[in-house]
């Protein structure tokens, strides 16, 4: 299991995704190959409709590619639409997700939203509660633990969502426009949080964003256009 830390958190080998068929066919991804090491925090940029969400959901094992391989911690988990592992289990044990909004279950309190993720991973009782409170505390929302999501501000909701995504100590954190609903100051704070988390937990982090101003937070930036992936080796801080 130790060698897992040496393999990239995620790697895709020429994955393509085609939606529909015939006249309505849309090629959302074309031979996209990329790799994120553990502890690496990467931004994914691209115009609307360029395939960012498609790539993220393919990596997240919720939207299988039409062809190409997905490797997690060095192991091929998908080849085209075929899966080689229990995807639910992989998501449970290795992946964390954060979306633009509605990340939380509305009928559970902030604390319970974190607890449910732990419970799904088999952590229950006192240890679960302690870990959940630690997470909420480290994200600065411990005082709102008992509140339902509807009673939290957008930024607080996203922090709870981050806490929830981190609960199972994922090796890969996937975030799709997590700051779109936040003002730029708060957005930047959340991005910095991702950076810290990635570095501290030795987790790979992939964040889809439109926010050019926060790009300096990331180790690396990838760019998608019309389903084609390109690397920005230079930090586009000057954009």
């Amino acid at each position: 299991m130790k060698n897992r830390t040496h393999a990239p958190a995620i790697e895709t080998v020429a994955i393509s995704k085609i939606y529909g068929s015939g006249n309505t066919e849309v090629v959302a991804l074309r031979d996209a190959s990329m790799k994120i090491e553990r502890g690496e925090v990467v931004a994914l940029l691209g115009p609307s409709g360029s395939g960012k969400s498609t790539l993220l959901s393919a990596i997240g094992l919720i939207n299988p590619p039409t062809k190409g391989q997905i490797k997690i911690d060095g192991k091929v988990v998908m080849d085209g639409p075929k899966s080689f592992v229990d995807l639910q289990r992989y998501r449970r044990e290795r992946l964390g997700f954060i979306f633009q909004k509605s990340n939380l279950i509305p009928f559970l309190s902030a604390l319970e939203n974190v607890l449910i993720s732990l419970s799904i991973s088999g952590v229950e009782g006192r240890p679960a509660k302690r870990r959940a409170m630690e997470l909420l505390d480290s994200l600065g929302v411990a005082d709102r633990a008992k509140n339902l999501p509807a009673a939290l501000s957008g930024g607080q909701q996203q922090r709870v969502a981050v806490a929830r995504a981190l609960a199972n100590k994922p090796s890969l954190l996937l975030a799709d426009e997590p700051t779109a609903a936040l003002d730029s100051k708060l957005g930047r704070q959340v991005m910095e949080l991702f950076r810290e988390i990635g570095h501290e937990n030795q987790a790979g982090v992939l964040v889809v964003t439109h926010d050019q101003r926060a790009l300096d937070v990331f180790d690396r930036t990838m760019y998608l256009e019309d389903g084609v992936l390109a690397e920005h080796e230079v930090s586009p801080k000057t954009n």
Binding site: R91, L95, I120
Partner: peptide, 16 residues
Amino acid sequence: VHDIALLKLMGAKDRV
């Protein structure tokens, strides 16, 4: 539906 999708995303088993 959205919450169930979220649970499944977190890897919840069918029996949950």
